[in-house]
Amino acid sequence: MNCTVLGCGRWGSFLASFHSRKNHVTLWGRKGSESFETLRNTRKNDYLTLPDTVTLCDDLGKALAASDTIIISISAQHLREFAERINGYPVAGKTFILCMKGLEEATGQRLSCVMKESITQAIKVAVWVGPGHVQDFLAGIPNCMVVDSEERGLTEEIVSGFQNELLRLYIGTDLIGTEIGAAAKNVMGIAAGMLDGKGLSSMKGALMARGAREIARLIAAMGGNELSAYGLCHLGDYEATLFSPHSHNRKFGEAVVKGEPYTKLAEGAPTVKALLRLGHEHGVELPICETVNSILYENASADEAFGKLFSRSTKEEFYL
């Protein structure tokens, strides 16, 4: 399955590089950006060397025209603006796969909805999420991920076309749950980093259990299947997000409570605002998300915020 990858960060460059072993791949990056210019000048970044079978391109129109299957791997908060640019080109009938995790901060919308709103042409949209770090894949360590869309046939086609010895792909059947779960796991990653920073790492097991239950309630209230929270999109991604030294969200949370700078992208920071918006709209309490939000945006100390979380009234473990 030939494809175009839009976005040349660590995940986009890995997908382009790995998939190009058997297929033609065009990798697009923004002209002048550090990541793209580094690849253009050296064909290397901090993680890999691009094979000759990857065609680099900074012309969005040409990149879109190069394939009918388009993978997007950029920051979630820039997707609407980017999709509106894409809409200026003839893309009707093309398949867009969102290899990114997040919710639009300003609206709380899922990324597939942002795509459908922003591109007025008839396109197909799928998401590809789940655990896995580029560093591990490049070391030959396999993992499992999930693909989801509103069309079963499209999901199966993508799984069949992209599955390989490193990436075992599963067929998702709950687009709402898959997208909410994938976005929310980044918030749990920030919470885990905060626990690490306060010397409370042993509590990450409890965070996993309560975090998955919190998000399951939200998914169900939004019309999704709450079991998705316990699948690859969310709970299945916890090890890679709550414990891995490669996790940007975990490292960001740890840096915040230690008062240290951190410059890498942590998608969970804007996503927590979107989740609280959704929780309010659907009448679902999200105490862990509220705790993270209070530390990030309300000047609450971690000690104060965690103390408030623990002083909440006791409930049955699996209350609705």
Rank of each mutant, 00 (worst) to 15 (best):
Q135V: 14
H78A: 15
L98G: 02
T55G: 11
K116H: 04
C99R: 04
G93S: 09
T42E: 02
I72T: 13
A126S: 12
C99S: 12
T69Y: 06
M100D: 01
E117G: 11
A76N: 13
I119T: 01
L111E: 07
H133N: 11
C113I: 12
L56I: 12
A126W: 02
A65N: 11
V91K: 00
E84L: 11
G88S: 10
L50D: 08
L79M: 03
T95E: 03
A63W: 04
A83G: 08
I70R: 00
D58V: 15
L64G: 01
A65F: 10
D58W: 14
D46H: 09
L138I: 09
V127M: 06
V127H: 00
G93N: 08
V91C: 03
E84H: 07
M100N: 01
Y89Q: 03
P131F: 08
V127E: 05
T107W: 14
Y89G: 02
L48G: 00
R80V: 13
T42N: 02
L60S: 12
K124D: 15
I72K: 11
L56C: 04
I72R: 10
L56A: 04
N45C: 07
I71N: 01
D52E: 15
T42F: 05
N87C: 09
Q135A: 14
F96K: 00
D52G: 13
K101S: 05
I97W: 05
A65T: 10
Q77T: 05
H78T: 14
L60I: 14
G93A: 09
S112H: 02
V91E: 00
A106W: 11
L50I: 11
E84D: 08
E84P: 06
S67H: 07
A92T: 08
R43S: 03
N87P: 07
K94I: 04
Q77P: 03
K116S: 08
K124C: 15
E105N: 13
L98H: 05
I72A: 06
S73K: 05
I72C: 11
S75A: 12
N41H: 15
G130M: 00
A106F: 10
W128S: 07
G132I: 07
C57W: 06
E81Q: 12
T69E: 05
Q109A: 09
N87Q: 08
S73G: 06
E104F: 11
I119V: 13
L50F: 10
K94H: 01
R110Q: 10
T95F: 03
C113M: 14
N41W: 11
R43L: 05
A76S: 15
I71E: 02
S73W: 04
V129E: 03
G132L: 10
L103K: 04
R43D: 02
T95W: 01
S75K: 09
F137M: 15
C99F: 14
K94L: 04
W128Q: 05
D68K: 01
Y47M: 13
G61W: 08
M100C: 04
H133K: 08
R110V: 06
Q121I: 03
M100P: 03
I72L: 14
R85P: 02
L56M: 06
